[in-house]
Amino acid sequence: MHYKRDINILDFYGSLDENTLLSYKGPIDTRILQVIGSYLEGLLKESPKAGRKVFKIFIELAQNISYYSAEKSIIRNNEEIGTGMVLISDSINHYIFVTGNLVKNDDIVTIIEKSEIINSLNREELREYKREQRKLPVGQKGGAHIGLIQVALTSAHPLDIEVNPIDDDYSFFSIAVKIDK
């Protein structure tokens, strides 16, 4: 017998290549942060420098999803937690870290603008931009941008941003980050 399936599991499997270390979709709460965080710490001991960077980038991007994803899940104690995806793949020279989550179309322009600014700056300019942004009073979404600046500084590569419109209200926002080994 077959249960009703909403996804084609073979397509999903095929879309992740053999370099995939980890893929997760779901609410990103503190337990998931802990589990994936310690998995990464253990797994990446072989390349400590890249390992620390991957861990730091994971925490920033995962916490961004947890706070700011437009898709929320209600988990224990009626807590509302942001939902999204996390993918990590391992190549010979680098790790690629990818996250994806829904963003309201009203917010997407700001995120793209900020990402473009981040990618246009060299390291010193980026540090200055971080200091400026950090001085601003804590706005509702302000934290996310500083997180992105820090991710760019930690990775020392441009952020690879992709936006796919979903409908009138939402888009799928994805960010890929490269970490040298």
């Binding site: 861990f55 730091k56 916490q63 950090r134 804590v138 934290g143």
Partner: peptide, 12 residues
């Protein structure tokens, strides 16, 4: 040893 960006605001 480790701190995230929102902790860095608190350090400031």
């Amino acid at each position: 040893r480790y701190f995230n960006t929102s902790s860095s605001k608190c350090i400031i």
